[in-house]
């Protein structure tokens, strides 16, 4: 088995400047005639990224807003394919970022557990095994057979977190440590994340919080304008981040 769980070499990713602006076909057609140069339509969101994460390692990524942190996580998760370079990831990946969506409104909570499980590549038997644990963790057992559309936002978030965090991934990608639901559930989810981080999983955390990264990570990288600018030493990443803030 390979030593490293994530191996990124010289990866670059372009991203469109106007994401949803090009709504009308008219604009699409006229845009063609106007010949907007490529560099005005696309920008380099990630550039020359080299990153090796060993099995079981916990790595933090820190950087100002818009520096490409979340994009990097999505590239690792396979959501975006790199335009240049290579990205190799071994094992089951789960991206934990802003939750509660991806549910089908007309299906019940239980049915959504099954659906989400199969989306993440589990077969019916393993999903049935996890089901009770997920329902317990979510703390909404009495509503689990009601359609999702009857749920409050808090209940959806709870169920979303309960499902994702119980999938036991080999590689866990965390985009900002989240604050979900009431105080009790927040405490519970924080404890669960700690548990996952301390377990066997390889973890990549994106966060602004120095204290979280310091307490959890083996290595911390600073990222700026789509490039990794520090060598993995937590202190140099924090130093870089402090200097960026000024």
């Amino acid at each position: 088995m390979n030593e490293s769980a994530i191996s990124i070499k010289d990866a670059a990713l372009d991203y469109p400047r106007k994401k949803k602006g090009v709504g009308l076909l008219r604009e699409f057609i006229t845009g063609r005639f106007k010949k907007i140069p490529r560099k005005d339509r696309w920008f380099r969101a990630l550039n020359g990224i080299n990153l090796e994460v060993k099995r079981g390692e916990v790595v933090g990524i820190m950087g100002p807003n818009g520096s490409g942190k979340s994009t990097l996580l999505r590239v690792i998760a396979g959501i975006y394919a790199p335009d240049e370079g290579s990205v190799e990831v071994e094992g089951r990946i789960t991206l934990l970022a802003g939750i509660g969506t991806g549910f089908n409104q007309d299906l019940t909570g239980r049915e959504n557990i099954k659906l989400t499980g199969s989306i993440f590549g589990f077969d019916s038997n393993s999903i049935s095994d996890m089901e009770e644990g997920i329902i317990d963790f979510s703390g909404i057992r009495e509503f689990i057979d009601d359609p999702i559309r009857t749920y409050s936002a808090g209940m959806r978030a709870r169920l979303g977190f309960a499902i994702i965090s119980n999938l036991e991934p080999d590689i866990l990608l965390l985009d900002e440590v989240m604050s979900v639901g009431d105080y009790e559930f927040r405490k519970k989810s924080r404890a669960r994340i700690d548990e996952l981080v301390q377990g066997d999983a390889t973890v990549v955390i994106v966060s602004h919080s120095k204290s979280i990264l310091q307490s959890m990570c083996d290595k911390v990288y600073g990222i700026h304008n789509g490039e990794i600018v520090t060598d993995g030493e937590p202190d140099s990443a924090f130093e870089f981040y402090e200097s960026e803030k000024e």
Partner: peptide, 13 residues
């Protein structure tokens, strides 16, 4: 187990 387990994901092929 599931289909994507222990599979290497490469999206630069």
């Amino acid at each position: 187990m599931g289909v994507s387990e222990n599979k290497v994901l490469r999206r630069d092929g």
